[in-house]
Amino acid sequence: MNEGVEWALHTCVNLCWIPGQSVTAARLAAFYDLPTAYLNKQLQALARAGILMSTTGPRGGFQLARPPEKITLLDVVVAIDGPEDAFRCQEILRSGPGGQARTNYRKTCLISHSMRQAEMTWRKELSSQSIADIVQSVEHSFPKTPEDTRHWFDTIRT
């Protein structure tokens, strides 16, 4: 999983605390001292996935495209990293001693099976948590964070 997933998740959470405002990629990047061009690439991927909406012009920027309850952690991961499986069986058993050319090792290999099962559990867990769930947890554990975030975006100009 690339670091863009972490950046995208934090950005979505921060946008929850400044609803209705479009925020430029430069300001979102400055919040964590991230490279603007690279974060912008992640923001564009989120916009293509319907997680963010992008507006152009002097008041342009990014904001959530749907309620945070409707954005799962898996939605963000897939938007940034793509829908491909994390583990990709290359069927190396076919090349080993006793390998059979006609055997589908993706189905018969116990390692492939175990990795696929673990990934399904991981995806199920990510799909069961929303951005709203994260926001709620942050607000419970760190109650000043929403106010501090709003204050930063209200006062800092980039």
Rank of each mutant, 00 (worst) to 15 (best):
H10Y: 09
V13F: 03
S128M: 00
F142V: 08
R94T: 10
N14W: 11
G50F: 03
Q44G: 10
K107H: 13
T103Y: 07
P83K: 13
W7L: 11
R106N: 14
C16M: 02
T155L: 07
W122G: 04
E84K: 15
L39I: 01
D85L: 12
L73N: 03
G60V: 02
R150Y: 13
G61W: 00
A101F: 04
V76R: 01
E6W: 08
G61E: 00
T103P: 03
D85C: 12
R27E: 15
A47I: 02
Y32G: 04
A101I: 06
C16N: 01
D154Y: 06
Y105W: 08
S127V: 00
S127Q: 12
W152Q: 01
V135E: 05
G99M: 05
C12N: 05
P35W: 06
R150Q: 15
I131A: 00
S141H: 11
I134E: 05
P68F: 00
N2V: 12
D33W: 12
N2H: 07
G60C: 06
V13M: 06
C16G: 02
G4V: 01
A45C: 12
T108G: 07
K41R: 14
I92P: 12
R123N: 09
D85I: 05
W7D: 13
G99K: 09
V23R: 12
F31C: 03
S137I: 02
M1F: 14
P19D: 02
R123S: 06
S141P: 00
A8G: 08
W122C: 06
A30V: 05
G20E: 05
T108K: 08
S130V: 02
G99A: 06
S95K: 13
L73A: 07
S130W: 00
S130E: 00
L126C: 08
K41D: 11
G4T: 04
T56M: 11
Q21M: 15
D81M: 05
T108P: 03
K107T: 09
I111A: 09
I18A: 07
E91T: 12
W7F: 10
F31W: 10
Q63S: 10
S54D: 10
A65M: 06
Y32K: 14
G61H: 04
A25E: 00
I134R: 07
F153G: 01
S127H: 09
P67L: 06
Q117R: 15
W152H: 01
G61K: 02
T108Q: 09
F87N: 10
P146N: 08
P58T: 08
K70V: 02
G20Y: 00
V13Y: 05
S141L: 13
T108R: 11
N14P: 03
S22I: 06
D75M: 03
T158M: 07
R116K: 13
